[in-house]
Design a protein around this nucleic acid. Structure first.
Length: 189
DNA sequence: TAGGCGATGACCT
DNA sequence: GGTCATCGCCTAC
């Protein structure tokens, strides 16, 4: 089981530096969080419900959910299906479609266009309509190639989760200005 | 069927 | 540093 959990963390790290395109805007991924599925109390897949069902299926699918009624958060299902792992895309820097991203996000500094999971989803115009798409297919939402290997990857506790908050499964590119600030969930103890 | 709560972000002091 | 908007989903009744 530990090996499978390590796979999810490796998957998360491997996404850093890759591009992710959503409806005409592309970002270079700078921050992610890994969720270990059935063995991870912080994961939506910890309980198998209709919503989390997609994480028990094929890897490379998009899992989109709404947070606090306002924000769309973007996850990539990693597999293996036996543990229902997924990786949350938390932040990135816009590398293509800058004008469109600015239009969607309004008057904010470029480094903040896709800073934080809600903002990233907004900049890429990801909604529930994109739930379940295969990100390896070159459609309006897809995962692109590695732009450049990140020089230094750092890790730390995940942001905002109230359970298993001390598991260091947040990974980010050191020094990247688009990485969001760490904030601990007040319920995490 | 009702109530509680959250993998957030923006704005306030 | 603290507060709050806002609504879909999950759980308990």
């Amino acid at each position: 089981m530990n090996d499978e959990r390590a796979q999810v963390a490796d998957f998360a790290r491997s996404l850093l530096g890759r591009t992710f395109t959503g409806h005409g805007v592309a970002v270079r991924i700078s921050e992610v969080e890994a969720y270990g599925g059935v063995t991870d109390p912080a994961s939506h897949a910890y309980r198998r419900t209709e919503r989390s069902e997609i994480m028990y299926g094929e890897p490379w699918r998009l899992y989109v959910y709404r947070s606090y009624g306002l924000h769309w958060c973007v996850n990539i299902v990693t597999g293996p299906a036996s543990i229902a792992g997924a990786v949350l895309l938390r932040a990135g820097s816009v590398v293509d479609g800058l004008a469109l991203a600015r239009e969607r996000r309004g008057d904010v500094p470029d480094a903040q266009l896709a800073r934080g999971p809600g903002n990233l989803g907004h900049a890429l115009a990801i909604t529930k309509a994109d739930l379940g798409v295969d990100v390896c297919e070159t459609t309006s939402v897809h995962l692109g190639p590695m732009l450049s290997t990140p020089e230094k990857i750092r890790s730390g506790p995940r942001v905002g989760v109230s359970r298993a908050a001390d598991v260091p499964w947040r990974f980010w590119v050191a020094g990247d200005p688009s990485v969001s600030a760490y904030r601990r969930n007040p319920r995490a103890g």
